[in-house]
Amino acid sequence: MGIFAHAMPLAGFAGGLMIGLAASLMLLADGRVAGVSGLAARAAAIGTSSAPYTVALAFTAGLPLGAFLIGTTGNVITRFPASPWILIIGGLLVGYGTWLGSGCTSGHGVCGLSRVSPRSLAATFCFMAAGMIIVFLMKFIAGVA
């Protein structure tokens, strides 16, 4: 209990396995990494990924479809930041950063780490550390946790 009171290790692990299986399916059947930022950019017709357009669009459209299916159980909680500014500033930085850094939590974090790619190890360290530091700063300096 204590600090882990709200954790869901089993659901997290099970969901993680599904994410890993999905990424494995993309790798072994389609021959490419399941990097969401790259495929979503391609699906939005702004990306430079070499993925066929229909592949990028199908994968990207599948994400909300899958979430919707699980959402019908009524057990999925989504607590968003209340301020639209937080969403807009966060979104701009996530888009800019994933483009410049060539990947996000899926491409670098899941696909890259499992390949022991030095670039992805460095990227994952950077975004994890930056995320922890900004949450700390928002909490203690700005007072908006």
């Binding site: 966060g90 979104g91 701009l92 800019y96 994933t98 950077c126 930056a130």
Partner: peptide, 24 residues
């Protein structure tokens, strides 16, 4: 790579969202 990933991490920490969950 390093600057981009750091900027991404800042946005991720601010909103609690990265591309996959945001689209889902």
């Amino acid at each position: 790579l390093l600057a981009g990933s750091t900027i991404f991490g800042i946005g991720w920490g601010i909103a609690g969202l990265c591309p996959g969950p945001a689209i889902a």
